[in-house]
């Protein structure tokens, strides 16, 4: 348990990258990028977890309650936004690749080489 969440993050990252290496479809590759990125959320939030801590809000709790790390949560929030926007941009590009090349298969996209 002590390092399981961290290892899981590494596994997810490699799984996503593996998906991109073997991908036969650029849209699929962008999806795999989203998978690889979710590893960063898992790592950040696992790092910030405090045993027995509650969520960092003080609406109806005592001000001395032990809370989990709010900083990593803010970082993860930023990360979620960044990931979503980059995914959107890349999907837009993939759509245009399909229009101009007639395919989204990396094996067939040979316009740039050498």
């Amino acid at each position: 348990m002590t390092i399981l969440p961290f290892l899981a993050a590494g596994w997810i990252f490699l799984a996503g990258v593996h998906g991109m290496v073997t991908s036969r479809n650029a849209i699929h590759a962008v999806g795999c990028l989203a998978v690889a990125q979710s590893s960063t959320y898992v790592l950040l939030l696992a790092v910030g977890f405090r045993r027995g801590g509650t969520a960092p809000y003080f609406s109806d709790t005592s001000l001395r309650t032990r809370v989990v790390d709010p900083v990593v949560q803010a970082l993860a929030l930023t990360d979620v936004v960044v990931g979503a926007t980059v995914t959107a941009l890349l999907l837009g590009l993939a759509m245009q690749v399909r229009k101009r090349h007639g395919t989204v298969d990396p094996d067939a996209l040979t316009g740039l080489k050498g």
Partner: peptide, 12 residues
């Protein structure tokens, strides 16, 4: 394809 390049393959 529109522009006639890369005609082969259609993974999608």
């Amino acid at each position: 394809p529109r522009n006639g390049r890369d005609r082969r393959g259609d993974g999608a």
